[in-house]
Simulated assay, not measured.
Amino acid sequence: MEKCKSVLCPRIQARLEKEKEKDANCDVMPLSDTHFNVRYFLDQLTVDLNARVCSCRKWNMLGVPCCRAIACIFFVNKEVEAFVDDCHKLNTFFKAYAGSILPCEGDRYCPRVPCNLDPPPIKIGLGKPRKNRIKHPKENPKKPGCLLRSGIEMTCNICRTKGHNKRSCPNKGSYVPIEPALKRPRGRPRNDVAASQPIHDS
């Protein structure tokens, strides 16, 4: 930073130069010595040099004049760097880092303080403490820890229809269950089974 020759910090100066390049697109219409109406493409904004305020609020938040404010500053033949906030200047930077931070010793060399640290006191609330847990609204009162089967649609094991179970099935006595198909044996056939099959000569 000591090698920097500008009034502002290098990054702020680079930001200001980018805003100066957009200055040519601004059309300034003076309302007074400090108030201006600026047209920037399709936007129309107002700038107050005394209050350092622009309608885009970029100057207010960053402390660096926007391209509309720079056009007004050039219109009154003044330097743009003078309208930058003091926190971005080199003098403020040197003042902030003028002091030095003393080195710190490690934990090994810190002085020992004879102080017994106790845990914070336990705060007991008013009233009788709760013993029973908060139950779920759909928990079965007869079987604690189990939920009710309300809302679950039952399926009959006999006729495989929904809406009832096998106790109340209307086809309980007359229904003949369908036998499942035989499963195909897995693996290679045994030698005795292969020998019993006839061999066709080609």
Score class of each variant (00 low, 15 high):
C56M: 08
C156W: 12
I199E: 02
H88G: 02
L42C: 06
E21P: 01
D86P: 13
T92M: 15
E153S: 05
P65V: 04
K142S: 14
K58W: 03
A24S: 13
C159K: 07
Y109K: 14
R186G: 02
Q13F: 06
F41N: 10
K128W: 01
G63H: 02
E139V: 09
P185E: 03
G163I: 15
A14M: 12
L148N: 12
K162D: 14
V38M: 00
E17G: 04
P103E: 09
F74K: 15
D192L: 00
I158W: 00
P114S: 09
C110A: 12
Q197K: 12
P170Q: 02
Q197H: 04
K5R: 15
L148P: 06
C87P: 00
C104E: 14
R190H: 09
V113C: 13
Q197T: 08
E139H: 08
T155Q: 15
K78A: 14
A69I: 04
W59V: 05
L117V: 14
R149I: 08
V47K: 03
P114K: 10
G99Q: 10
Q197C: 00
E79C: 12
V84C: 11
R112H: 13
A82W: 11
C156I: 14
H136L: 09
K128E: 07
R190C: 03
K20H: 05
N37Y: 08
P180T: 12
V84E: 04
P177Y: 12
N25S: 11
V28D: 02
F74I: 01
G173H: 01
K95R: 15
C54P: 01
C26S: 08
E81F: 08
G63I: 02
L8F: 14
R167Y: 11
P129A: 06
C159R: 08
S55L: 03
A69M: 04
V53Y: 13
I12S: 08
Q13E: 10
R112K: 10
N25P: 00
L102F: 05
E81L: 11
G173V: 06
R167E: 10
G173K: 03
S202Q: 04
R167D: 14
A71F: 01
L42F: 04
A181R: 12
I12L: 02
M1N: 12
V64R: 02
P30Q: 10
D48W: 03
T161D: 14
R167L: 12
E139Q: 13
E153G: 03
H88Y: 11
Q197R: 10
I199F: 06
I122D: 05
M61R: 05
S32P: 00
K3Y: 09
E17K: 11
D43W: 09
S174D: 05
G99D: 05
A69T: 07
D48V: 02
R112P: 05
A51Y: 03
I73G: 00
N171E: 07
G127H: 06
C56T: 04
D107Q: 09
D33V: 13
P198V: 00
I122H: 02
R57E: 10
R15G: 10
W59G: 01
R190N: 04
N37Q: 15
H35R: 12
C4H: 07
N37A: 11
K183P: 03
P144D: 00
S55Y: 04
I158P: 00
Y175M: 08
L8Y: 10
K143M: 07
K143C: 02
N25T: 01
